[in-house]
Design a protein around this nucleic acid. Structure first.
Lengths: 338, 338
DNA sequence: TTTGGCACTCCGGCCTACAGAGTGCCAGTC
DNA sequence: GACTGGCACTCTGTAGGCCGGAGTGCCAAA
């Protein structure tokens, strides 16, 4: 496949993304200075179609890139389109104003959707990949305590529990010391193992309370593993009404289902690298016409993923640049707050 | 206006809601046993149209209720349609399984959208109307602490702050005691006043730290007053595509804006009563074709609102019953956890 | 290998015709 | 006086038919 054919493909992708209409040979020959006539472009198009990169909705229409065509474009043709200095400053400032983790996530997801004009999705730092910074026990009444867990990413989980026996203030402090000694700094992935042995380490009188505590702790760590996800910019779906018309409903539904979103965001532990999944590559029926751009983020290690989804005919260079930039800034911020 | 005319209006509303198509005199005469002919119904319709309760999209079409027509229907004609025993049991069970406040809200909003097949909106218990159950200080490092505030509705807010001076463990405990003494049990509405005087009550050495703490506390109480709101069932908007076609976009946008949602949910402190706002009554342009059914909820006093929104042509009796039932159950649950 | 030319195909917009639904009104009936 | 059957009228939505335009594929020539 020679260079000019690639140029023709790029021209088709760019024009199609810009106009949303099939692009013909004449348009390509004119607007992109390829130095050849429309007839030549037609020959190249015939080749590209034969090879599966573009396709013709009907006999007398222009061409549209296929998933395979977009894939080639993303892999080999997309010139990176970095954010403008102003945009970068705005991102930085907006994120720096966040007052806690929730706020970071909320701001991130809004930012992404505004920068890209697409639907943005951000996974809260996963408990699985975080570790315990601190555990706190607060007695509310003699037989009732609140357990607060803070992770190194700033995520806070709290649960209340009834204790089997009334506890004195000192007992609470002792339990607090115990669980912190055992769990502080440990990755949550290791927590279940540690928690299992927790009760035995307590004084005999405290054992019943300690195991009640252990049970709740385990629930918090395990059953709460369901990931939290923030979504913004759903309204942007209506921009591309022509393409989503049929699936708008099911996409909106999917956006409220954590399972589906997690699958989109990064089932495989892809690391901090940026991933683009186009159309059928998403293996989910309702997303056959959808492209997803995701990146991992986190302080050092990846603790979660964020991304953007939109029609396959999206501005890949711009979207990729935005997702990458935001993921980096968020990682930096988490690093600072560590 | 005689009874039969009201019956005709009811028939029009019910049929229109069911079929989404303008309803003609013949259909009314046949399906609803009014004991009169279509011609008579036509006369009544002419009257109802004259009076502004129904309207005709074009000369040779059936009639459609106006906002005023729906209003009359809701106020005087809607027979209450209570949830089935099975539904009530399901609601109860589903909500009873909630493990904390966040979970209650999440489950509530899902429940509402599923019961009504509309978009559901639930406001988290408002900080303004809650009171302080407990304040906790957790030292993370010598110069850094985490402040956790728990309200009587179970809402938990947490913030981290840097202290102007290193604090010993005892100092932290003293500050903790101080803020709890002052604030425990107090309504958050009174908090700013109390917080203002907080620093002066501390030992002189602790004053700088106490005022740093007071500042953050104030921020948490005041600036965090922005309400949190959960939304579910946006996909249901696409059911009514015909009517929302134009405004779908702006409604989706509105659903991500707290300000607009709060306005819809209950600007006036309507108390626990159920409110229905139809079309123009919402005073927001994009909601000209939208009806909103809301109710307050809370343990005893109202701490927040929940509701459902959909096209004005919605099943009012069913929706009203669902919103009322769910609001009651949620209030009960908050009461129990108090 | 590229190009200009040409015949061909197909879509989309536009118009017309027509069936169907619903009305308003009127004259007649109870 | 209220109700009813009948009828003429109006308007929509759809189906069919008819271009114009855009774009192609192919061929012969440069």
């Amino acid at each position: 496949m020679d260079d000019r054919k690639l140029e023709v493909l790029r021209a088709i992708v760019e024009d199609y993304v810009a106009t949303q209409e099939p692009v013909g040979s004449k348009a390509v020959a004119q607007r992109h200075a390829l130095g050849v006539s429309a007839a030549t472009v037609r020959n190249d198009m015939a080749f590209l179609e034969e090879a599966g990169y573009i396709h013709q909705p009907h006999t007398s229409a222009g061409r549209i890139p296929t998933d395979k065509g977009y894939r080639l474009f993303v892999d080999r043709l997309g010139k990176i389109k970095p954010l403008s200095a102003a945009e970068r400053r705005a991102v930085h400032r907006f994120l720096a104003e966040a007052i806690d983790l929730d706020d970071v996530v909320t701001r991130t997801v809004r930012l992404l959707s505004q920068l890209t004009h697409q639907v943005a999705v951000v996974q809260y730092p996963s408990l699985n990949r975080s570790s315990v910074r601190h555990l706190e026990l607060v007695s509310l009444t003699p037989e009732r305590v609140m357990l607060v867990m803070i992770t190194d990413t700033g995520r806070v989980e709290q649960r209340q529990l009834e204790l089997p026996a009334d506890l004195a203030e000192d007992d609470v402090l002792e339990l607090r010391r115990l669980i912190n000694e055992q769990l502080q700094g440990k990755p949550l992935a290791d927590a279940p193992r540690i928690i299992a042995d927790l009760a035995e380490l307590a004084r005999p009188e405290l054992r019943p309370s300690a195991s009640a505590l252990a049970r709740v702790l385990l629930e918090t760590v395990v059953s709460r593993t369901e990931e939290r996800i923030a979504v913004a910019g759903a309204a942007n779906l209506t921009r591309h009404t022509a393409y989503f018309a049929g699936s708008l409903r099911s996409i909106l539904e999917a956006l409220e289902e954590e399972v589906v979103l997690m699958q989109l965001l990064g089932r495989a532990d892809t690391g901090p690298l940026l991933t683009v999944r186009i159309g059928d590559e998403n293996e989910i029926d309702d997303f056959r016409e959808t492209a997803v751009v995701t990146a991992g983020y986190g302080p050092g290690a990846v603790v979660g993923h964020m991304g953007v989804l939109g029609p396959t005919r999206m501005d890949y260079p711009g979207t990729i640049a935005a997702v990458r930039a935001v993921a980096r800034y968020v990682s930096e911020i988490l690093e600072q707050n560590r």
